[in-house]
Design a protein around this nucleic acid. Structure first.
Lengths: 136, 136
DNA sequence: TGTGCAGCTTCCAGCAATTGGAAGGTCAAA
DNA sequence: TTTGACCTTCCAATTGCTGGAAGCTGCACA
């Protein structure tokens, strides 16, 4: 009745609570990642606890490196009580594979560069094997 | 005199030889990564061996994950005979550090996601711990 | 009651680093 | 001559934001 009444907040507060800044919240709304916020009489966006929860969900998913496209799917699955866990799992597994692929690419790059850097004396002299190698 | 004469080529051939496609070569020129190509009477861009070499250099640097900004610097250093090797080395070392940072972030993400995925049965049932965890 | 400022609104523009397309000129072979 | 491959420029889209400008609203303070 009173204490449990909806205490909707403005975008700034929603930003603070979800960890997603206001600019980005509007952006997410505009590209359909999060549902359209309600509006006050004067046109301000209003956010419920549930809305803020979705924003946090998006934030956390981003932190885990999901693309916006994937997150759009995840948010849909999350809001849909009848979704199958297999959908979620396959998305996650695919994503793990992508990240592992990226990690090994980066490791190969580091390997090569470290080798190049080791052969470069790194003083004031003009000749540097890094550049020579890059040129081949 | 004759056999060593400059045999400049069009952008398509330069693309083939450098591994950088024509569209991208024009783009690199427009943003000043590579020097402006010469032009034939009819306005076609022409590329010498040296030009192609620069393009290959850019390609290889990109493969090693350097940003365009860094590559711009590298190309400058490469074309400048009097540069100091310390400039090159510090650029490379900084880049290695950046990549290593990225690798550990990715590894942390994979770790987390792998954990989440393990706890998800991945069948037709609607409840999935991945989504539950993401929501917190 | 004003006034001042924080906070909200929209829209527009740009960042990296490409990629794609449209509309048109050129070159060489058939 | 005509086809077709190649070249030219310019403009737009992509992904995931971030920033600014111009203009409301809301609220405290004098």
């Amino acid at each position: 009745m009173s204490t449990t009444a909806a205490k909707n907040v403005n975008i700034g507060e929603a930003a603070k609570r979800s960890g997603v800044n206001a600019k980005l919240i509007r952006h997410y709304e505009s590209i359909g990642i999060v549902p359209k916020a309600g509006r006050s009489d004067s046109g301000y966006r209003t956010y419920s606890e549930a809305d803020i929860h979705i924003l946090s969900f998006v934030k956390r998913s981003r932190n885990l490196g999901f693309s916006m496209k994937e997150i759009k799917k995840l948010v849909g699955l999350w809001r849909n009580k009848s979704r199958a866990s297999s959908d979620v799992k396959s998305l996650a597994v695919k994503h793990i594979e992508d990240m592992e692929q990226k990690i090994s690419e980066l490791e190969a790059m580091v390997q090569t560069l470290r080798h190049l850097a080791k052969t470069c004396h790194g003083d004031g002299r003009p000749d540097c094997p890094i550049l020579n190698d890059l040129g081949n």
